[in-house]
Design a protein around this nucleic acid. Structure first.
Length: 272
DNA sequence: AAAAGGACCTGGTGGC
DNA sequence: TGCCACCAGGTCCTTT
């Protein structure tokens, strides 16, 4: 679920009800996520006010006076806001309770996510200090991408998905952006022209902005509606469409594996 | 240093 | 119905 648009949608959904609220209880049922949840998290948080919720890449950053709570949703995680007495579902690993009346509940079946704590400057944290620019930031532009690509002899899709190059471009949007830019995912990065990079940067921004705007469906899901989102599905041009007709040219969408990830493309539309 | 592959974990699906 | 292989929205770590 958590591509960048969904993480941003989650952030927007929880910041309003929770900002300025005070942590009154922290319940850890399953501490073993990607890394162990700090056992002293309850004592660190209880009594503190949640000052703000920011996002960097796919990390949610919950700022308090003594430090920052870092939450990553991994491959399968999500956050919901509920009444604290809501019956538990499978994989409800952590509850953060505010003012004894609102519960932020973390659920993550595969446990690839993370809940961490730091008291230092947040952007110096080892997980954050080597990240590339945000995709929607002006620093992510054709000049930057083209320069990076010069010394990369790997498929452009792998470059796009490398968080040291640019954050937040997951498998779905890498496929979609490359289709929009008419560039084959397998194209060797150092073969791309400046013009290719221009189109690709534009496509990444467009696809992510559109998906964030479509985040309403996710928000609804996140607010407690049952059932899976399917939020951006209708807009997908290539992802998960193997053997189906390309919407643009009617040739069949093909699938291959690049860096162990499913990759979808139209050889007719994506010639670069 | 760059590139490739493995690792972490559960659930759903499709084949036999 | 059961069992099994394989796939899934991420990303760090180890090996080549």
């Amino acid at each position: 679920m958590p591509e960048l648009p969904e993480v941003e949608t989650t952030r927007r959904g929880i910041v309003k009800p929770l900002k300025q609220q005070t942590f009154t209880q922290v319940i850890i049922r399953q501490p073993q996520l990607r890394w162990p949840i700090p056992a002293n998290l309850p004592e660190l948080l209880i009594g503190s006010q949640l000052l703000d919720i920011k996002r960097r890449a796919k990390y949610l950053l919950l700022a308090t006076k003594p430090g920052t709570l870092i939450i990553h949703l991994g491959m399968s995680g999500h956050l919901r806001i509920l009444s604290p007495d809501t019956p538990l579902k499978k994989h409800d690993h952590v509850d953060f309770i505010f003012n004894d009346e609102l519960c932020l509940r973390y659920n993550d079946p595969r446990r690839f996510g993370a809940i961490l704590w730091t008291e230092h400057a947040i952007f110096e944290h080892p997980l954050l200090n080597k990240l590339g620019p945000e995709p929607l930031d002006p620093n992510f532009n054709a000049e930057y991408l083209h320069a990076i690509c010069q010394n990369k002899k790997i498929p452009i899709k792998v470059v796009l998905m490398d968080a040291h190059v640019v954050v937040g471009v997951g498998n779905i949007y890498a496929n979609e952006a490359l289709f929009l830019a008419s560039i084959l995912p397998s194209a060797c990065a150092n073969q791309l022209t400046h013009n290719n990079c221009e189109k690709l940067v534009t496509a990444v921004k467009l696809v992510l902005e559109k998906a964030i705007k479509a985040g309403g469906t996710t928000l609804k899901d996140f607010m407690g509606t049952t059932g899976k989102p399917g939020y951006f599905r209708h807009a997908l041009q290539v992802y998960n469409r193997e053997h189906q007709a390309c919407f643009r040219c009617k040739h069949l969408i093909q699938k291959s594996i690049i860096a162990q990830r499913s990759t979808y493309f139209c050889t007719y539309c994506q010639s670069a």
